[in-house]
Design a protein around this nucleic acid. Structure first.
Length: 422
RNA sequence: GGGAUCGUAGCUCAGUUGGUCAGAGCGCCUGACUGUGGCUCAGGAGGUCGUGGGUUCAAGUCCCAUCGGUCCCCCCA
């Protein structure tokens, strides 16, 4: 069938048959973050385009070719392509640094990137995010990583199904020397690099390290370790010690440089062994010690993480993790005969006000059709109302599983049902 | 941006080398049971075979284009 209108490419509707799963993981994320002392922040769906251009980086794929830009008069906006920059912007705008100390902010947000959709990658996707602003110590890095792994574990994803990859990419003090080293390495192997990496060599040489086309070549690239300044080396070593203390397993991945310009020192991602197809990164993040200052604030260390909601759900399904059932009705009110319909509506309303989830036919359908509806909704009880019940101000309550029927006065109906619900 | 693949009823799909090919199952509706579901049985509604051209006596079935879906590269959540 040809449809006149469809959802935009790469953007999805979440229907009632699966929206309860979203509600489930969202609730888990909120609870989890509260447990670690975070407060929720909600920022607009779009921001000044310049915010992303300056923070994420003009040369990044995200800004250079994937951002949805809207223009209105003189103003240029962008649908947020990631979650961190808006949070930092809000942090500065509302003076959240004023009280001193560390700000821990979490969020659930859609984000938009104009890429070709594929399994686990959409143009509108959603992420769980957490940012720690104002903490320089590796304690913060360690806590964040432990929190992420615990989140997945809490959802029933065993550590064995995941891999935490960890790296450090230095800081403005030591990274330039490493960048030069990589650039020299790249120039020495220039002819063998793919065309995109050849152009990357000028603008963003570190990116050749995570190019999958050039892995064979860059396997011999120099590691960053000898280039790290004392501060970065100590930070990374301390972090690794803390992870060991916490029992958080990880693998060092020297190629993990990430695509956003604002990262410093720690970078990490969590990949899933199965269930995601080619887009197996469930989560990514790192430290961005220069971003707050770059956006106009005082020098402020910070770090954060983004977890893909769609990808998380894919993994939960692939691993057969425990998932909640869609909510069911407690009762379905059935009217036998037109005279009973207004009473049915009234009783349904009373039950609802008493906290009982119930529904009834709104089309004036036959008793049999109403019973079919009652059965299909999975309701535990059918509340039958006919001539007899109306005359005696009662209702016949039928347990749809046991077929047992009981006469209950209409006045006691809500209490009678509530008593029997789990 | 490049590539592969698919596109037949609400859903999952059959449809041989082009010639009753417009079908099945599930779902939905009605009835068998004039006030009662799940099982069974009997009926029924629903598709210009994504769209537009072309080849042919004849096209879901071949060709071209186009629009979608899915997946992959790139990159990322």
């Amino acid at each position: 069938m040809e449809l006149k209108y469809r959802a935009p490419e790469g953007m999805n509707d979440v229907l009632p048959e699966s929206s309860h799963l979203w509600q489930y993981v969202e609730a888990r994320w909120r609870d989890h973050c509260h447990r670690y002392g975070y407060g929720e922040i909600r920022t607009p769906i779009m921001e000044s385009a310049a915010l992303f251009e300056r923070s994420v980086g003009e040369t990044s794929d995200i800004v250079s070719k994937e951002m949805y830009v809207l223009e209105r008069g003189e103003e240029r906006f962008a649908l947020k392509p990631e979650g961190t920059a808006p949070v930092v912007r809000a942090y500065l705008e509302h003076g959240l640094h004023a009280g001193g100390g560390v700000q821990k902010l979490y969020y659930i947000t859609p984000f938009f990137r104009g890429e070709r959709p594929q399994k686990g990658r959409y143009r509108q996707a959603h992420q769980f995010g957490a940012e720690i602003i104002g903490a320089a110590h590796p304690l913060a890095d360690a806590e964040l990583l432990a929190m992420v792994m615990a989140f997945f574990a809490g959802l029933g994803v065993p550590d064995s199904a995941l891999q935490l990859r960890l790296n450090t990419i230095g800081c403005p003090e030591c990274r330039p020397a490493y960048r030069d080293g990589i650039r020299q390495f790249g120039q020495a192997n220039f002819a063998r690099l793919c065309s995109t990496c050849q152009s990357r060599l000028e603008r963003n040489p570190l990116r050749i390290l995570d190019c999958k086309v050039c892995v064979a070549i860059t396997a011999d690239a120099p590691p960053i370790d000898p280039y790290l300044c004392d501060g970065c080396r100590t930070h990374f070593e301390t972090l690794q010690g803390l992870l060991k203390t916490l029992g958080v397993g990880y693998v060092r991945d020297p190629r993990l440089v990430r695509g956003l310009d604002y990262y410093t020192r720690t970078t990490f991602e969590v990949v899933a062994e199965q269930g995601l197809g080619a887009q197996n990164a469930l989560c990514g993040g790192g430290r961005y010690d220069g971003l707050v200052e770059q956006l106009g604030g005082a020098p402020t260390p910070a770090l954060g993480v983004g977890i893909g909601v769609e990808r998380t759900l894919l993994v939960l399904h692939a691993l057969n993790a425990p998932l909640p059932e869609p909510p069911r009705l407690d009762a379905f009110v059935v009217a036998f005969g037109d005279a009973a319909r207004p009473i049915a509506l009234q009783i349904a309303q009373q039950l609802r006000m008493a906290g009982i989830a119930c529904d009834l036919d709104l089309e004036g359908r036959s008793p049999k059709a109403q019973m079919r509806l009652a059965n299909r909704t999975g309701a535990r009880y059918a509340i039958l109302l006919g001539e007899t019940e109306l005359q005696t101000a009662t209702a016949t309550v039928k347990d749809l599983a046991s077929h047992e029927q009981t006469a209950v006065t209409q006045a006691e109906l809500a209490a009678w049902i509530r008593q029997r619900l789990p």
